[in-house]
Structures are given as structure tokens and as C-alpha cells.
Design a protein around this nucleic acid. Structure first.
Length: 826
DNA sequence: GCAAGGTC
């Protein structure tokens, strides 16, 4: 029996498909799919099935000095035990094996992991390696026709990376965590990829903080072509000291003078007309980074885009989404693929128009790699019911990107008109899309035009309105997630499969907040500490050196042991310098952690008010002076608090936003909220105690910011009705006839929400809730729910405790036996 | 309970 091992199940199935001529049998062993035909079995791993770690005696952070990890041995252990077990079983029954993992460095290492597992079982069996960049009939068949050998040097290069990443990451992570006392869930991490990525964000934040805005003015004049009266905007410019065109005027007097001159002029003379045609070439095929960038431009986050792409890939609609490649393989026949879309209701027309072109020559990007093809559609098209809206959006994006890569160039016409009025220069830049080219099939790039009419040199134009606008220079912008991923790619840190996950890791570690991500004080302190003592770990240099070392190992010019040993020695040196600064670093980190939780001064004792977490996991505001000062303020129970930059004018406390997915809302200053708490307008008589005790219903705000309609006799009367958490409540003049209460309006967003009478609203809400509850019982439909409600059965509890015969009497068309059946199911 | 890299 021959055993074929691939990197993932999906690849195993497709290879089985190709090599068996679609006639394989599949079975499951330990939860792992095995594909079998003729004398061959094919199994897919799940990426790495073994991982590196220190021996167990190093696992307690407090028992081991971080520096000891540098010379600790690094062991490999199975991380996917069921897959490893399956591989062993299959290997015992095999006479030969073929490693068919991905054609890249990490694939070679994963292949070696499989090789070693097979070798443990059988020392003699021939084990070959096949390499192919895309799983197509041609490539797979020709790879299997001429199998090669595993490249142990290339795999060793991967192992060097594993060891160095673990040793540096673990030793420095433990050092910072121990020095600041951050053990448990809130440890402080450092790594070759995460730390330089974090430094990018921190450096940008430093620039923003150090930014000093400067005032300037820009002047725009309306020019009119006298005949026909077409008008267009022209911007004032001058030549600066270096002789370059400049539009920004840095002195107010100069701006005023230029504006006055232009306002005084009645005509401007055209002094130069420059027309040029620009070719706008279609984009290259998608690699992972460019795909993420394009998805984020249509409002889909990096994380979500990758998760959707993964699903579309698994379902067979698009190719593998983790790739560096931007050149389509020779096997891809663009015409054939376009043909698959022909006749499709929304994509067919564009495919057909592309097929009409005489020559179809796809664009190529700069990066040609062997890992996988660029992301493109497979030709399988989901129907709209198969996928949700976002999935379709992403699928369409991938399809249209493919369309764009086989489409024609677009052509723009640029028209620059320079004129002079009262000795002042004005310019206008017009652009027009004269040939839509690929834009016709790829509508994701802006094609906005700027109209400037046809004029001739010497032509006189009327000067219309002149506008001088004062502006300020802006600080550099924060990185958005897709921009950060692009920058990381440019620096060579992380991989196609991990960059977006690294960003998530920074969120999870409390290093960044919000979106676009903003570094916390903790992040600033971690980067500062690293810069001072372990600059390598926050610089891209470490990766660059590692890449060079890995190339040397792969090409046989260096040994794995020498490279890791040299790296260990560098880390030793770092630890020699760190030793004396342990307390200082710990103090700084602790202070920064506190600063991230700080709201502002405590009004009772002047210490800091901090966002804290109770033993039960809920958040509240407490004083740093505790236990001397016991001042606390409540926070809403939903969501995780985010401290905003905005401060409350009255108390000098930062405002708080509650992050809770779609229910995220700004809570504001917790002290203001606490002061506002209390009773609002009275609505009417309390239905519970009004007639006897004279209680009245009022809108109340609780200390934690939530609101309700409650009785003024609380706590003697506990009658209450819920209100929405967000928005202003308006009490209208209209009253509900049934309950004699005013109708309420909620202002939250543009359209006010008509909540109506609070009792009716609550009843409806309950009916909906209970209705769905009863509908969950098999055999109970919407109509039955209505009938049961009429008989007073509104919840499962009502149903379970009711007498079946009584229900049968009350409800038409329902027998007592049927009710008993429901009760049994409920 | 550390990293980064695969994959789900």
C-alpha cells in the first residue's frame, strides 16, 4: 500500500479525486478522513501536528528564572494526537509513502514532521516528496510521475525559526510578566513578529502626540468660460523658495493679499493648457494581503474577510486564500473560467463582454511563488441561498478581481489649465475617464471625474467667487488594520496566514484598543522597555537576520545548531543587561497598566479613580486609595468598558464606552451618570398599588445607567417595566386608552422609535418571547400559539401546568391528547 | 499561562 500525506484534508480529497479518477472511497479513522483507491491511501494533516516546547520542569513560571530558558532543551511533542495516531496506523500498513504537503518552507517542515512519524514505525520504507503549486490535474499528475526527496535543509531552516521564536518569546515574555507581577491571564508578551508590529503603532502614536499643527490658507476661485457660462474651480498657487508649485499659504497677510487681488480681478487669462492621456492598467491577481485590503475597502474587516474566504474555499467556490503569489499558474485557462460565469444572472454579462475580447492576457504581479495560486474563483458559483450577504460580497469581489485581471486598460484624459488674474496664478486639474476598461467589471476603485472645460491659451475667463479657507496641518493618521498588514508585509514580518491574527493578538493582550487600533499605555511601556534593553525584538532586523540565516541553512551554508546557538548568545547578553533593571521595568509596566484604567481624580480623596473588575467579573469604578477611600461608581452590566480620550468638563473624568459587539454604546462620565440617577417624569397611576396606596409610575434611571418605569413607592411596591438602554426618552401627549399611560418616544439615531405605552410595549415583547418559546415545541405553529394565548397559555410553564382537558375545551381544534403530547415534549 | 507557524 502507498500512503500519501498532505497538509490539510481539503488537499487530500482533491488529490484523491485527481489520482483516482474520482473513484475513491473515504472512511474515518480517529476523526480523520482517509481516502482510498486501488493500492493507495491519502490522508490530510492539519498543518503542524507536532510543536516545540520546553521540558515540563520549566513550565512553572515562578520556579524558573527566565534566563534559564535560554539554554533549556527544546522538545517536539505531538499537538494533534488523533492525526499522529492515524498516521502511525496507516504507516504500519504501508510499503511506501509520499509527502505532498504545501510547496513552501513551512510545508517542507510539516512534511518532515510526517516523515519522522512514519520513520518511527518503519525504518526502511521509501519516503518520497512531491511538489506542486496548485492542485490541478496537470500539476499533480506530473509531480507524482517524478517524485523527489524531502529537503531536510529547508525543513531545518523552519526548525531554526521555531526554536529562536520560542526561546526569545518565552524568555522575554516571562521576564516582563514576572517583573510586573502580571501572571495568569494578563501576562505581558513579547515576540519577533508581534513586538515590531506593536512598535509600528506606538511610533505612529508618538508622532501624533508630538505633532504641532500649523495654520495655513488655501484660496480657490471660480472661473467662468464667458460663452456658455460653464464654470470650474481653480486653485491659487505660487512658486516657493525651491521653485516648486505650492498651494498652501503659510501667512495670513499673504493669503489676504492674494485673496484681495483675486477678488479685485474681473477676468483671468489662460496661460497654459496641458492635455495628456494616461493609461490605467488593471490590478494584479489577489494575494492574501491585497485581498484583505480590497475587502476592508468595502467594509469587511481583515478577520472577517479571512474567515469568509476560508468558508468559500472549503465550499469549493474560491481557491486557497493564504497565498503570496500574484501570478496565475499556466494551468489556469482564463477563457474557460470566464465561460463558467457566462449566463449567470448578475455576473454573466460582464464575463461575456470579456470573452468578446480578441486576446485575453491576465495581469501579473511582482511576486511569483510556489506556495499556491493567487486567490481566484474556481468556477463553482454559489446560489444566493447558499451564502449570506457578506459571503456573497466577498465572493463577488474575488470574481470581479479575476475579471479585472483579464480586462483591458482604462484610459483617463487629464486636462490642466493654468491662468492668471491680477498677477496671481491659478490652476485647475480636470480628469475624465474616456475608456472604462477594467473599471467596467471591477467597480471598487473610485472613477470620480473632475470637470474642467475646454479652453485655449489666451482665452479670457470671468472670475467669480473667491474663497479663502483657513486650515491646519493634520497629524499623521493611525494605521488601519489593512494598512498595518500591508506595512508588515513590506517589512517582511509575519506571514500571509498570520499577520491578521497577530493584530488580534495585540488586542487580546491589551496592547491596542478600538479601531483603527490605538496603543495603550501598557503597549507604550512594553515597547519602551524593549527598545532600551532588547532592541532586536522590536525591530524588523531580527526577522531579516533570521531570514538570512534560514536561507543559509536551506542552502547548506550554515548549520541549524550554529544559528540557534548564536541567537541564544545574543539573548544571554540582553539578559545580562536586564538583570539590574528588573524592578525599574516592573514599576514602569505597573504604572502604565494603572494609567490604562485611570478615569481621573477621585472627588472624595483626590487619588485616581480606576476601572476595576469585581470577583464576579462585572466592571465598576473604584478608587486607587482603597481601602482608605471606599468611593465607587457603577458601570453598565453589558459589555467591556473602553476609556475614551474625551473628558467630562464637570468632573475631569474620562468618558466610558461599553464594547458589546453590535450593542456597543457610549456610557459617558460615570460620575455624571450617577448624579443623574433618580426619578424622571411621572407617567400615571401604578396598576399594582395605585388605587389602594396611591403609587405612581415614573421613568427611573438606576446608578449603573440603566432605566426602567417603576413605582414611586419602591421598595414597598416593586412593579416595574423595562426600557431600552440607549436613547433619550420623550413623554408624548398621547395616552394609551387601555392603561391610561402616555405613549413614549425613544430618540436614538435619526428616526425616533415609537415605543408607545410602556405596558403595551412590554406585553408585546412578552408575547413575542413566549410565542417563540412555545413554537419551539414540535407540532406547535404560529396559529396554535395565537389560539393558546387567547386561552391564557403564553409560556411553556403555563402549558406544562395547565389541565389538558380544560385546554381542549377552551381551544378550538385542539384535543386533550395533543396537549399531552406537547407537554411531554416541553 | 510563554512565540510563530501551520490549519479549522
Amino acid at each position: 500500500m502507498e500512503l500519501i500525506v498532505t497538509e490539510k484534508d481539503n488537499a487530500a480529497r482533491r488529490i484523491a479525486d485527481i489520482l483516482s479518477g474520482e473513484s475513491y472511497d473515504s472512511s474515518r479513522e480517529n476523526g480523520v478522513n482517509v481516502y482510498e483507491w486501488g493500492g493507495t491511501r491519502c490522508v490530510g494533516l492539519s498543518g503542524h501536528v507536532v510543536g516545540v516546547d520546553f521540558p515540563p520542569e520549566y513550565s512553572d513560571w515562578r520556579d524558573v528564572e527566565p534566563v534559564e530558558l535560554i539554554d533549556a532543551s527544546v522538545e517536539k511533542t505531538a499537538t494533534k494526537e488523533n492525526i499522529v495516531a492515524t498516521l502511525r496506523i496507516l504507516a504500519r500498513q504501508a510499503e511506501e509513502a509520499t509527502i505532498a504537503t504545501d510547496y513552501d518552507r513551512e510545508g517542507e517542515l510539516i512534511g518532515k514532521e510526517a516523515y519522522e512519524i512514519i520513520r518511527e514505525v518503519d525504518e526502511e520504507m521509501p519516503i518520497r516528496r512531491v511538489r506542486f503549486s496548485s492542485i490541478t490535474e496537470n500539476e499533480v499528475r506530473s509531480a507524482f510521475a517524478e517524485p523527489e526527496e524531502l529537503d531536510f535543509d529547508l525543513a531545518a531552516a523552519g526548525e531554526a525559526r521555531q526554536t529562536i521564536d520560542l526561546v526569545w518569546g518565552a524568555a522575554l515574555t516571562r521576564f516582563l510578566s514576572l517583573s510586573s507581577g502580571q501572571l495568569g491571564n494578563d501576562f505581558i508578551s513579547v515576540g519577533r513578529v508581534q513586538s515590531p508590529a506593536l512598535k509600528l503603532l506606538v511610533d505612529r502614536e508618538r508622532e501624533i502626540q508630538a505633532f504641532d499643527p500649523e495654520s495655513y490658507w488655501e484660496i480657490v476661485a471660480d472661473l467662468e468660460k464667458t460663452e456658455g457660462g460653464e464654470d470650474f474651480e481653480s486653485q491659487y498657487f505660487y512658486l516657493d523658495e525651491e521653485g516648486n508649485e505650492a498651494e498652501r499659504v503659510w501667512e495670513e497677510e499673504a493669503a489676504d493679499a492674494a485673496t484681495a487681488d483675486l477678488e479685485g480681478a474681473t477676468t483671468a487669462t489662460v496661460v497654459d493648457v496641458d492635455r495628456r492621456s494616461r493609461t490605467d492598467a488593471p490590478p494584479a491577481p489577489f494575494n492574501t494581503t491585497q485581498f484583505i485590503r480590497a475587502a476592508s475597502a468595502i467594509g469587511i474587516s481583515a478577520k472577517r474577510a479571512m474567515s469568509i474566504a476560508e468558508d468559500l474555499y472549503t465550499a469549493g467556490y474560491i481557491t486557497y486564500p493564504r497565498t503570496d503569489n500574484t501570478v496565475y499558474p499556466d494551468d489556469l485557462d482564463p477563457e474557460e473560467l470566464l465561460g463558467e460565469f457566462s449566463g449567470h444572472p448578475t455576473l454573466g454579462e460582464d464575463a461575456d463582454s470579456l470573452l468578446e475580447s480578441e486576446e485575453i492576457e491576465p495581469t501579473e504581479g511582482d511576486e511569483e511563488t510556489t506556495d499556491h495560486p493567487p486567490i481566484h474563483p474556481t468556477g463553482e458559483i454559489p446560489t444566493r441561498g447558499d451564502v449570506d450577504d457578506d459571503e456573497w460580497k466577498v465572493f463577488e469581489l474575488v470574481v470581479r478581481r479575476f475579471f479585472a485581471t483579464v480586462a483591458d486598460d482604462a484610459r483617463w484624459e487629464h486636462l490642466r489649465v493654468e491662468s492668471e488674474a491680477a498677477g496671481r496664478s491659478l490652476k485647475a486639474n480636470g480628469k475624465r475617464l474616456v475608456e472604462a476598461g477594467y473599471h467596467a467589471v471591477y467597480p471598487y476603485f473610485s472613477t470620480s471625474e473632475n470637470y474642467v472645460p475646454d479652453v485655449e491659451v489666451g482665452e479670457e475667463l470671468a472670475v467669480g467667487e473667491v474663497e479663502c479657507t483657513g486650515k491646519e496641518t493634520q497629524p499623521p493618521r493611525r494605521y488601519g488594520q489593512s494598512r498595518l498588514i500591508e506595512t508588515m508585509e513590506g517589512m517582511g514580518i509575519g506571514t500571509k496566514a498570520t499577520r491578521h491574527e497577530i493584530i488580534q493578538k495585540l488586542y487580546d493582550r491589551g496592547y491596542i484598543e478600538s479601531d483603527p487600533p490605538r496603543p495603550t499605555q501598557l503597549a507604550m511601556a512594553v515597547v519602551e522597555a524593549a527598545e532600551e534593553f532588547a532592541d532586536r525584538v522590536v525591530s524588523e532586523e531580527m526577522t531579516a537576520q533570521l531570514e538570512a540565516d534560514m536561507d543559509a541553512i536551506a542552502s547548506g551554508k550554515a548549520e541549524l545548531e550554529d544559528v540557534t546557538q548564536e541567537s541564544r548568545e545574543m539573548l544571554e547578553e540582553i539578559f545580562e543587561n536586564l538583570a539590574d533593571s528588573r524592578e525599574e521595568i516592573g514599576d514602569h509596566l505597573r504604572k502604565s497598566l494603572k494609567a490604562d484604567k485611570r478615569l481621573g481624580p477621585c472627588p472624595e480623596c483626590g487619588e485616581d479613580l480606576l476601572v476595576r473588575r469585581s470577583r464576579h467579573g462585572s466592571y465598576f469604578v473604584g478608587c486607587d486609595g482603597y481601602p482608605d477611600c471606599e468611593n465607587t461608581l457603577p458601570l453598565p452590566s453589558t459589555g467591556k468598558p473602553l476609556i475614551l480620550e474625551e473628558e467630562c468638563d464637570e468632573h475631569g473624568l474620562h468618558e466610558v464606552k461599553m464594547l458589546a459587539g453590535r450593542q456597543t454604546f457610549v456610557h459617558g462620565c460615570p460620575l455624571c451618570k450617577a448624579e443623574e440617577a433618580g426619578e424622571g417624569p411621572v407617567l400615571g397611576e401604578c396598576p399594582d398599588c395605585g388605587t389602594q396606596e396611591g403609587g405612581e409610575l415614573a421613568v427611573k434611571t438606576l446608578q449603573n445607567g440603566s432605566r426602567l418605569v417603576g413605582c414611586t413607592r419602591y421598595p414597598d411596591c416593586e412593579y416595574s417595566l423595562p426600557l431600552p438602554r440607549r436613547g433619550e426618552i420623550e413623554v408624548t401627549g398621547d395616552r394609551c386608552e387601555e392603561h391610561d399611560l402616555p405613549e413614549l418616544l425613544v430618540h436614538n439615531g435619526e428616526e425616533p422609535w415609537e415605543l408607545g405605552c410602556p405596558i403595551c410595549n412590554y406585553r408585546e415583547f412578552q408575547a413575542r418571547e413566549n410565542g417563540s418559546e412555545l413554537e419551539a415545541i414540535e407540532g406547535v405553529g404560529e396559529k396554535t400559539v395565537e389560539k393558546l394565548a387567547a386561552a391564557g397559555i403564553e409560556s411553556i410553564e403555563d402549558l406544562s401546568t395547565a389541565d389538558p382537558d380544560a385546554i381542549a375545551d377552551d381551544v378550538e381544534g385542539v384535543s386533550a391528547d395533543r396537549v399531552r403530547g406537547w407537554q411531554a415534549k416541553a
